[in-house]
Write a protein that binds this DNA or RNA. Structure first.
Lengths: 355, 355
DNA sequence: AAGACTTACACAATCGTTTATGTAATTCCC
DNA sequence: GGGAATTACATAAACGATTGTGTAAGTCTT
């Protein structure tokens, strides 16, 4: 752990060449340089050639900071996520970075740690870094949205993804969570399940509310009763999933399937079911949400709803780009809704009804 | 997918208050404002109070861009990773962002997509964003390191993590991969295994070379023969792991254990072993590397080496901070080496020798 | 009481770009 | 061939903060 250290004389840091250097070298004004490099029409083709050749030769690197200062807008894109772990957020960030860099933007990434105060600070940080836009998935504890209002007041594009405000007067990219819940539940019904339990997330997050509603609507459409006794609310960790499963199995009339709004909890449930010597899916079918990597390596493999993480990142950036293009006095509020995809795997496939 | 769109008049974007505004309001010079806010000694306590109170009242947000331009150094930290997926890099980034934000730095994140050309571009991007430092884990295909030289020439701190240059004239934070390989192999030997195969990564990456060497040295120290026939070189995907396992099991004298330099490939191997009706660890013991999340949910659970992802991120930032503090004409090259931790799980625990 | 500090602030240059506003010289149209 | 339009460039003022230098006044030393 103790760092080995060596010392060495530092050569004087070479200062990068500026537009002024180019101008001096060619005996022209800085205007000419600036415009030649940005291909302005008022510069003759011969001059442009000369300037660009010299720029290459001297390895000129534009100072984006200076440009951003002057123009009031940088090529930086701020992203706020609750955390960078698990599968979902890293994948979304992956998608965001790829799409952003294609459009010439660099992304600054912040973690709110699921904390509203931290989130406010992130906003301040990003604003003072003069970002061109902010993409955010709100923290679980955020219930006051005034800090976002400040962003709008500054005229900086703001796009929510996945976790958004209830208010739909914002730009957002979300998954159709309702549909995910509906499809998954309907699939279980189609497999012959009649008493389907639900692991529900905390209901002040829109995503979990919607998944639950999809579940309820699917039951209703199939003429099945909705039984609050079968709905378990929690943070949906593995442990809570196992606990919930234990309680459900101890009921006088236990369920024959579980649709969980998360994958970890359904994994916990799977382990509990196996511990009790029951079989999945014969005795109880399982379906989760998120399509985590581990869903395809459990035994049996777990049915789950894919959230289109990367597409979500890309769509969020696309929406941001549209916003800065259309910044002509009108502020638009758009909702992009991605369609979930149900991955049916062994944990919900009754041999009796193979498809 | 088609965005619903609403239109609304955009209120004129409020321009943020600047130091000039504060100065005008109080009838003092900008110098006073600047120095009062940065707690300079040449400003009287009464004046400082007044300035800071007004700043709060008007919700003054410093323009970091302007400051960075003037000072030549921003509060931005550039990070280049091959990609943001799996467990390792997201976790390291998580650690980096946490540590950096504590020190007042924002992190700009770039993906090289394992491509050297992309990596060069990332460097250019970060340099022109005037970052205060660059933290990088080099792409798999990088074999020319001149673009990093440019960073040093500019006098910008450069810290490598995990994947570094061979040359040790750099600042780096790495895992003791050799030790990980040694410990893991020794553990298998202690469990009674005598013919241990190795899934090796591509050998031009230092991490994989070191893990392999640890494996070889452990064999040697135990007086066991080193058999190149038992070493399989690949990208270590699940499929390649399964293929390798199949080939090894078909040998006239198959191995009784596998130490893999990655977890995915050992997972593939596990599945192949089960497909062939053999038992883990009785017929063949398995140990992986990375301590991926799935290692504790397979059956049996997989033994693996933890890479201290978050610590690595934090250590990398710490090293960067030391570098900017000590920027007094001397350029130091330090290597921080983190110690791996072997997580022994069912896949390598022979009942015969329980510990 | 003269010189040496310290305190408390203002002036103005500076970082590297962008851009509104000139100003010539050329070309074009009728 | 006179006025308009176009081409090709220069001048200089921004953008918002930092900082070396200057300058008064007050405090202290001996």
């Amino acid at each position: 752990m103790a760092p080995r250290a060596k010392q060495e004389q530092l050569p004087p840091p070479t200062t990068p060449v500026s537009m002024a250097d180019l101008a001096r070298e060619l005996g022209v004004s800085m205007t000419t340089i600036s415009r030649a490099l940005s291909d302005h029409h008022s510069i003759g083709p011969a001059t442009k050639q000369k300037v660009q050749k010299l720029a290459k030769k001297l390895n000129y690197q534009p100072n984006h900071l200076a440009a951003a200062l002057r123009k009031g807008k940088s090529k930086l894109l701020g992203v706020i996520v609750p955390y960078i772990e698990g599968r979902f957020f890293p994948s979304v960030v992956h998608g965001i970075e790829s799409a952003a860099s294609k459009a010439g933007f660099s992304v600054i990434i912040c973690q709110s740690n699921e904390d509203a105060a931290h989130e406010r600070k992130n906003i301040e940080t990003l604003l003072s870094a003069q970002v061109a836009g902010i993409l955010v998935s709100v923290a679980r504890t955020t219930n006051d949205f005034r800090h976002f209002e400040k962003v709008r007041k500054r005229g900086i594009p703001l796009v929510f993804f996945d976790r958004t405000m209830d208010n739909d007067a914002v730009n957002s990219v979300v998954l159709n969570d309702w549909k995910g819940g509906y499809q998954s539940t309907k699939h279980l019904i189609d497999q012959g399940c009649r008493r389907i339990a639900h692991f529900a997330g905390l209901q002040h997050l829109n995503i979990y509310r919607n998944r639950r509603q999809g579940y309820l609507d699917a039951l209703h459409d199939a003429g099945l009763p909705q039984d609050e006794e079968l709905i378990v609310y929690s943070d949906m960790t593995m442990e809570e999933g196992a606990d919930a499963m234990r309680r459900l199995l101890a009921l006088p009339n236990p369920p024959d399937a579980v649709f969980s709004a998360g994958d970890s909890s359904v994994l916990g449930a799977l382990q509990e079911v196996k511990r009790q010597g029951l079989r999945v899916p014969q005795d109880i079918a399982l379906a989760g949400f998120s399509n985590e990597a581990f869903t395809s390596i459990t035994e049996p493999m777990l049915t789950s709803v894919d959230q289109r993480c990367e597409e979500m990142g890309q769509a969020t950036v696309r929406l941001f780009l549209e916003l800065i293009d259309s910044a002509g006095g009108a502020y638009t509020q758009r909702q992009v809704v991605l369609q979930p995809e149900l991955f049916v795997r062994e944990s919900s496939l009754h041999g009796a009804k193979p498809k």
